[in-house]
Design a protein around this nucleic acid. Structure first.
Lengths: 172, 172
DNA sequence: CCTCCATGGTTGACGAAACAACTATACCGG
DNA sequence: CCGGTATAGTTGTTTCGTCAACCATGGAGG
């Protein structure tokens, strides 16, 4: 590797923005995790897993589909779903049409858990992120995030491309 | 707790923005970590630690000051600095004026490490975050992030308040 | 059919982070 | 001075995520 080719650097304004973005990235996940852990006894990722299942048809998804929607690796999801199953919030079963595949289904208790914890989570997101932003700022934020994602996630792993219609998650 | 008081929810535009923000928060740290791990053999947090030391007067800081600048808890920093010391990149010594305190100092090898890995890191940040943003968008992003941080980090843990002057990090 | 490879998922080992307990120094009031 | 409390870090424990094998099923080619 050549260490000499055009060592670009951030300009002052970019650097100021970068410090703030790092702060948000560093602190926001912890806040969300803390709130959910305290009020619902769930990790943010566990909540996300349950939430994605709650919005799926039949409240069930194959592991690989669930992994994509939660942006997790398959091993990680496997561990988490096993713990959730031990707590009775989801149930696993092999898919009838492909015996390699596993489908995770939300149990009644899991559904109740999501319903109970969703409002508090939404409230936290609103308070920490959106309360002081007007519609214009949200729009610009959206544009900016889209441009970032074009580089960060070129293959649209999340399934939220720029062409996103009203596909957004709804209250369960 | 009353589960009935005004269950606010995200409006569709906020939800679309939130999905994107979650994606960025979920994917960006991994990318930065990967690049630094591959090219420099450093965690993003390890790099941040060395970088903060490299910008401090005398290239040394007390643990608590370093913890604040890197947004880490003291236990976490303690472990990381121990590993960095074992690799010869930093050195620890008790402060002469307060024998409770420990100062972490960047060694020559640590300095070289920062100098060698900073350009690649900057390049990654520029490519993944700022390459497609014009000055206006960066400005709005800055405003938006500031408003978030007012809620997320009310006590300005990072030391980057809204009144930030040209205090930004420079190339080491 | 039967072999070979790809796919879907699980398991186990390891590294790192959060949390709690502990040590040692400093400071404050009497 | 001397006891009590606060401060600065470190150490140990548990938990979570990542990585590298590892099964099992499905599908394609001979």
């Amino acid at each position: 590797m050549s260490t000499t080719d055009s060592p670009r650097w951030l300009d002052p304004e970019q650097m100021r923005s970068w410090l703030r973005l790092q702060a948000v990235i560093g602190l926001l996940p912890g806040l969300l995790d803390q709130q959910l852990r305290r009020d619902a006894g769930l990790t943010h990722f566990e909540y996300l897993t349950l939430a994605m299942l709650s919005e799926a048809p039949g409240r069930e998804l194959r592991m690989s589909a669930l992994a994509q929607r939660t942006n997790a690796t398959l091993p990680r999801l496997s561990h988490v779903v096993r713990r959730l199953e031990e707590r009775g919030l989801v149930a696993r079963s092999t898919a009838p049409d492909d015996k390699r595949a596993t489908v995770a289904r939300l149990t009644a208790a899991g559904w109740e858990k999501v319903v109970a914890s969703a409002p508090g989570h939404a409230r936290t997101v609103l308070e920490t992120v959106y309360d002081d932003l007007d519609a214009t700022e949200v729009g610009t934020l959206n544009t900016v995030l889209d441009k970032m994602l074009a580089h960060i996630d070129p293959h649209d792993t999340f399934g939220i491309g720029p062409a996103t219609g009203p596909r957004a998650a709804r209250r369960p």
